[in-house]
Design a binder for these strands. Structure first.
Lengths: 171, 171
DNA sequence: CGATAATCGTTATTGATCATATCAAATAGT
DNA sequence: ACTATTTGATATGATCAATAACGATTATCG
């Protein structure tokens, strides 16, 4: 972005154009070598971009991807407790506590002591939580995933999803 | 894994089988809902798996994916300084310092004051660094990427790489 | 039954990763 | 010469991930 902003400034000085060596990628012309072939590298870079875009798309609701996934899972699985939700998301129980504290303080969900097992906390969305989740889903669908379909095309997006699922399953 | 161990134990009690509801995934039969359709979610899960496998494959050399990519880039781009290498990897300069300290203390690379610009440090691999990098590349190729070809198939692996590059580029 | 083990949510703590502000030294721009 | 900027570095904070341990509760089983 520093590069593109510099380019704009130079473009506004018609006097001596092209003295800046066709800029674009500034520090680059650095060879990536076999890094371009490393799947893990591309995977991480892509993931960071996607997450950034996700956050941008639901910025008005102040939801991180992790928070969104928690709300989704609670909504789809009423009656589950903390460990069950945390486990299926790969979140460790200790780290899940602060996360729920945050969501609960925003009145998006509540912990209810189970009658069967008074150790566990049943999780459920509040009305407000359901509203926010619905809005988030809409934003994700119309902005985030729509953008993905633009860039990849629907067929590729599906194929990509399938391959990633394969990786997460068979690895 | 807790689930499968439990299953074995139950199988060894022929008396009253099937009282444990066909176990398998214990906490599960939890519905993922539209989470399975969220590209970012699958992307992150896959990335974590791939990184774990990478670390496992080069465990004998004690190299993280990030360290490997740094060594690769230094090797492929002799004469570059810290900011140049850090920038192309998306690493912030302050965070790159400790990383290089570590690699330098292991005698894998060296910082050399540039003659042209005495502010900057030219980075280069040591002989030892080149040896380790060569070994790492071999391990990655024969173990890590080979495994990927097994799971995905060569065609899919290439297609996946291309899509990820597209995402990182056009997003 | 009662003793022991296991589970649930929680706290505390540590390490790794990531980001920002700031600095001295060196260089560039004017 | 005077000011900007750049480079590597330090300090610091935020976020995330991982482990150990605890009180309360429930399960196991002798």
């Amino acid at each position: 972005m520093t590069a593109s902003r510099t380019a704009e400034l130079n473009a506004s000085k018609p006097g001596k154009a092209r003295e800046v060596v066709e800029d674009h990628e500034e520090a680059s012309q650095i060879k990536m070598g076999e890094l371009s072939e490393l799947l893990g590298y591309s995977l991480k870079r892509a993931q960071l971009r996607i997450f950034d875009d996700f956050i941008r798309c639901v910025a008005s609701l102040n939801l991180t991807p992790a928070q969104f996934s928690v709300l989704l899972l609670i909504d789809r699985n009423p009656g589950r407790n903390q460990t069950e939700i945390a486990n299926t998301l790969g979140i460790l129980r200790p780290n899940f506590v602060a996360m729920l504290d945050s969501l609960e303080s925003r009145e998006l969900c509540v912990r209810v002591r189970s009658a069967n097992d008074r150790r566990s906390h049943i999780l459920m969305l509040t009305d407000n939580g359901r509203t926010i989740l619905a809005r988030a889903k809409k934003l994700v669908a119309t902005k985030h995933e729509a953008r993905l379909n633009e860039v990849l095309g629907p067929a590729n997006r599906t194929a990509l999803l399938e391959m990633l699922a394969t990786l997460a399953r068979d690895f």
